Amino acid sequence: MTKTYFFYGTLSYPPLLERVLGRMPNMRPAFLDGFEPRIARRNGEDQPFPILVPSDLGVPGILIDTETEAEETRLADYEGGYRLHAVEVVADGTGGTTPAQVFMPDEGAWEVGEPWDIAEWAETWGELATEAVEDTMASLADLSFDEIYDRREQMLVRAAARVRARETSPASLRRQAALTDVVVRERRSPYAKFFAVEDYDLQFRKFNGAFSAPMERAVFVSCDAAVVLPYDPLRDRVLLIEQFRVGPMARGDGNPWLLEAIAGRVDALESPEQTALREAEEEAHLALNELVPVAQYYSSPGAKTEYIYSYIGIADLDDQAAAPGGLDEEGEDIRPHMISFERMVELLDSGELNNSMVVICAQALIRKREALRAQFGAA
């Protein structure tokens, strides 16, 4: 038996509804009296979805009919923090009311924010929220709704990375891949916090055209990142930062304080360039004048999703240009070092610059240095 649902929030956005339901249903305009949609808030922070509160304004939305119990299960799973309530809605063109089910949160579960505007939400969050559906639905077998909600920011960051990953990349030598060249048989998320681990059962098309045998692969899911090495072409001076790193510590490195380029996660609504500028301010209180692209690359493609956007940042590196930085809430304690170009080369040759991101930026600076000094007026 089919059920009729009334949607007024993110599920009234057709691309997202299609992704959750697995098909595009017939959507009929409708109106619910007695409520209005407001932005949900928690701890004073706006969330990218609405709640219903009592009001005389009423709520515009859509009606859809499910076809199978599996569709109803997918809707209930996606709206795991809400409960179904029976309502009567006014369907356009019928002249009367229609019984429907609507998802609503428990009273007091959320703080009430500003009025909800579906068009404004769609422009800002629509594409990312739709892309994040895949992660949400894949996590349902392993995580509770509260655990998934706690990872909402990471899921949106990953969704933004997936959108960027669809941009055309060069393939003049490697194979021209098709969507049908990889078959994911099963995907699991046994661990998911700030980072996540995903287990895949998959097959891929081999160079002879046949598919590989089924194989299991684990992937460490981290976000896209932006890296920038500040350089002053007039003073021929470079800025490095130093901070404690848990990776070398866990490996057994006797000195887990590394010299690095400035770097950070590309947040959901940021471009990599915006991230580079923001991180320079956060980590070294440094304003960059211009970004010179270096390279884009996977840091460890055999096991990690991390994709790096790297830059040389043109800056005025006088003696007061930088200061210790980092965010206390992220446990950061960062010390800047302003050094000559020659000293950077010495550190590279000695192995004291020992992480891939700073090595790649330093090598790029060696290659681009003379052109940058000429471009920005060095003698």
Rank of each mutant, 00 (worst) to 15 (best):
Ala280Asn: 03
Asn355Gly: 10
Val345Thr: 12
Leu258Glu: 06
Gln375Tyr: 09
Leu291Cys: 01
Thr275Val: 02
Ala280Leu: 03
Leu258Ile: 01
Ile360Tyr: 05
Glu370Trp: 07
Pro293His: 03
Met338Ala: 09
Glu306Tyr: 03
Leu286Val: 07
Ala303His: 11
Leu288Gly: 04
Leu372Gln: 03
Ser299Thr: 15
Lys368Asp: 15
Ile360His: 06
Ile314Pro: 06
Ala284Phe: 00
Leu353Ser: 07
Ser350Leu: 08
Leu269Ile: 08
Gln320Lys: 13
Tyr309Gly: 03
Ala303Thr: 11
Ile308Ser: 00
His337Lys: 07
Ala315Pro: 01
Asn354Ile: 02
Glu306Lys: 15
Ala295Asp: 14
Glu330Gly: 07
Gly351Arg: 07
Lys304Trp: 11
Pro336Lys: 02
Val359Trp: 00
Glu342His: 13
Ser300Asp: 13
Gln375Pro: 00
Leu277His: 13
Val359Ser: 02
Glu282Phe: 06
Ile339His: 02
Glu329Ala: 14
Ser340Gly: 13
Ile308Gly: 02
Gln375Glu: 14
Glu329Asn: 10
Arg278Trp: 00
Gly351Cys: 10
Asp349Lys: 09
Ala268Glu: 07
Pro336Ala: 08
Glu352Leu: 14
Ala276Val: 04
Arg369Cys: 08
Glu329Asp: 11
Ala303Glu: 11
Ile308Tyr: 10
Tyr307Val: 05
Val294Trp: 05
Asn355Pro: 00
Ile366Arg: 14
Arg369His: 13
Val294Gln: 03
Ala295Gly: 06
